[in-house]
Each structure stands twice: as C-alpha cells, then as structure tokens.
Amino acid sequence: MSEQALEVRLRASALLVMVGIIVEIASLTWRHPTAFIVFVGVGGLFMAAGMTSFLWSIVSRGGK
C-alpha cells in the first residue's frame, strides 16, 4: 500500500470513529429506547467500521 493510500485510510478510520463518538454523545441527550438503538446501531457501527479500517491498514502496511 502506498503512503498516500495509507494516509487516506488512516484519516477515514479516524473520521469514522469520530462520527461514532459524536453519535454516541447525541444519543445521551434523550432517554428513550431509540437512544439505545441509535447508540448501538449507528454509533457502534461507525466506531466498529473505523476500528476495523485502522487495524486493516496496520496489517496491510506490512510492518513498515
């Protein structure tokens, strides 16, 4: 993987996790079952996607 592609992936990973955390903060502003669903279903998915993308980029980098 080229350095530029790696940087794009790292940026995307961080952004995905950031969006997930912002969704989590938003879900804490109301008390309703939908808040829990949004936290897990939307925020959790974004965070998982970001973390998975980051870990994949580490593995793809080949230990450089």
């Binding site: 990973s13 961080a14 996790v17 997930g20 955390i21 989590e24 879900s27 804490l28 008390r31 808040a35 829990f36 936290f39 897990v40 925020g43 959790g44 965070m47 970001g50 973390m51 980051f54 870990l55």
Partner: peptide
C-alpha cells in the same frame, strides 16, 4: 482509534443500560 473509543463505548453502553 482503538483504546480510548473502546473505553468510551463501554462507558456509554453502561450509562444506557442504567437509563
């Protein structure tokens, strides 16, 4: 990207379960 968000995620989950 991994450690802090995971901690935040678990803390948030705990808060939601309490609610």
């Amino acid at each position: 990207i991994i450690v802090l968000p995971l901690m935040a995620g678990f803390a948030g989950l705990s808060e939601h379960v309490e609610r």
